[in-house]
Structure formats: structure tokens, C-alpha cells
Write a protein that binds this DNA or RNA. Structure first.
Lengths: 170, 170
DNA sequence: AATTTTATGTCAGTGATGTTGACTTTCCAA
DNA sequence: TTGGAAAGTCAACATCACTGACATAAAATT
């Protein structure tokens, strides 16, 4: 049933020995790690009555103030109907401000209010703390490898977008 | 261990120089990478009329044949009501078999049927292909680091469980 | 033997998040 | 002026998660 084919052996500039078992463990590590990754923000969000979708919207608006709805849609990879529901609640609750574009009045530019910034900061702080702890535990070389693999795992479109988003280290 | 390799990332003994910006980029990389990570299985599942919850159940049953419902609950971190809905549909569709325990008749031991194995394989193959591609692109040292950071990012309970899962064939 | 705990299953209700489809309003640009 | 892009809205629906309440059976404990 279980093959131990020659796919275990990858030849090339860097020789890579990867068994199916190692790849499967990698997948599972990704699954469990992502759970840990979202655990702290989820707790904070639950208190505020928001979910992960709100977190993502707040995060990327805080990261790129004045971003348009369309841009946010592309980053988040959801439908405008789904995003609209989230944005509406954030705007109603006074966490996000939507300003009609000056150059193109069809566009809405999104900004965090002071209250929105407060939530953003508390979420970011929590997530940063976990990232920092994980990085510290794993060591500096591990961090480089971590980032390289994550980038390689993205869909090409998202990788391009990711690398265009802000100044890259490494 | 070797603390002298990346001076731009290292401070003294075990302390990392990590700017908030670097940590934030790490978080975003995690977010985008996870989207890529689930993209291929999601496509396959959509054709079969299943979701990620089914994927996870099928995966871990395939990985540990004979596992109990309770064990699966702990691994997946969902409520029994949520898991039950998923398991019921998988059993009804003939992908999973539930056998009453011999030693403890309260327990149900879960197994994949031939059809369940087929779905599991197609999902696993897709995810493995992406993992393999990402690993190849990132290089062998990166893979080590990737795994180390992911493990450090897990909640302690899950990390223990993850590391205990290695040879768990029951 | 009686009671409690454990393991599982089920029903009902709720909420967050996502989808498609159909439509309107606004407004830039050919 | 007309076509189409951008944004918003509404309806309907699916998935997946949650809580709470309850049922059943069997193991464990008293």
C-alpha cells in the first residue's frame, strides 16, 4: 500500500530527501500550528463579539490605511458580499471609517478609527508575542527557513502580492 | 545552538533581533501560506461535496486507523456535535466504518473504507505535492527551520500530541 | 447493588463565514 | 451618450463552528 518510490529522492542543486511521511508530518504541523497561531486573537475577538474575518479586515486596513474595498477583496480572497457584511458592522461600530475617493468617487477608502486602532493593536500584540516566542524557541536560522517555506507555499498571485506589500527583509 | 551565524537576527544568548515589522510579516506569511496550503484539497473537496472538516476527519482516521471518537475530538479540537455531523455523513456515504470496541464497548473505533481511502489518498497527494514543491523551492535547511518554528507555534498540548503521533499506528 | 463517570450519539437552536445570483447606484472613460 | 467598472445591497443558502439538553450504554467506583 505504502510506496517507497523514487520520489523520496529529489536530485538538484540542493539534494532533498523527503519521505511521504515527512511531508505528511509537515502538513499536520501546519494544521496544528495554524490553530496555535489564531488561538490568541480568537480569544480577544470572542470578547469583542467579532470573528476572524473582522480581524483580517482590521489588520489589513491598519496595515494599509486608505486601501480600497477592491484591494482588500483581492488580499482577503473573499467575495465582496462577504466582506461587505464584515465592513458594515465595523463601520457601524465605529472601528472603521469609509471615505469616498477624491480622484475616483466610486472608490471607498478605508481607515481605522481610534477605536479600530485599539482593537488592531491588541490583536497584533497578541499574535506578535506568539510569533516572537516561536522564533526565539526555534532559533534564527529556523526563522529564515520558516519564511522561505511559507512563501513557497503561497499561490503565485498571493506571493507576488505579499512581496509587494511592504519592504522585505532577507 | 550556533549563535553566530546571522548577526542581523541575533542579539546575545538566545535573544533575537526581531522588529515588529518582521514579526508582522511573519504573521501575514502564515496567513497567505495557509490559504495556499488548503487551496488544492478545497478544490477536490468541493467536487465531492465535502468541506475541510471532512478532510481533517478522513485524514486523521486514515493516519490512525481504529482511533476512537474521543481521540479524534481531542486532535481536531471541535465539539462532539460538530464532529458527529461530519462523521455521520462520512459513515452514511460509506467512506468511514465505525466498529464497537471489543475491550470497551462504549468506544467506537473508526476506519476508512476502500472509498474513504481513495478520497484520503487524493487529498493527501495534492497536499503532499504542494509541500514537496515548497520544500524544494526553499531548500533542505529551510525545511528544518520551518518545522521547528511551526512546532514552537503550537499550543503546548497540541505540540505534545503532535510529537506523540509519530509512530502512532495503534 | 447502587451510583457515578465516561463515551458516544442526537436534537434543537444560534452565529460567523462563506457562496451565487440579481439588482441598483455612482461615475469614469471611450 | 453609452458602456462598463466599482461599490453596495438584498435574498437565499451551505458549511462549520458553538451551546445546551437529553439518551443510552457500559465501565468504574463506592
Amino acid at each position: 500500500m505504502n510506496d517507497t518510490s523514487d520520489t523520496d529522492l529529489m536530485a538538484g542543486a540542493g539534494l532533498l530527501f523527503l519521505t511521504d511521511e515527512q511531508l505528511m508530518k509537515g502538513s499536520e504541523a501546519m494544521f496544528f500550528a495554524y490553530r496555535g497561531f489564531t488561538a490568541d486573537p480568537d480569544r480577544i475577538l470572542a470578547e469583542s463579539g467579532y470573528g476572524r474575518a473582522h480581524h483580517r479586515a482590521v489588520h489589513f486596513i491598519g496595515r494599509s490605511p486608505g486601501t480600497t474595498v477592491n484591494n482588500l477583496l483581492a488580499i482577503l480572497g473573499v467575495t465582496k458580499q462577504s466582506l461587505n457584511r464584515v465592513l458594515r458592522s465595523l463601520i457601524e461600530d465605529g472601528l472603521v471609517e469609509s471615505r469616498v475617493g477624491t480622484r475616483d468617487k466610486r472608490e471607498r477608502h478605508l481607515f481605522l478609527t481610534e477605536e479600530g486602532n485599539k482593537l488592531d493593536r491588541s490583536l497584533t500584540d497578541a499574535q506578535r508575542a506568539r510569533m516572537r516566542a516561536a522564533y526565539s524557541a526555534a532559533g534564527p536560522e529556523a526563522v529564515q527557513g520558516f519564511r522561505k517555506v511559507l512563501e513557497a507555499m503561497m499561490d503565485p498571485d498571493m506571493r507576488r502580492r505579499f512581496n509587494r506589500m511592504k519592504d522585505n527583509d532577507k
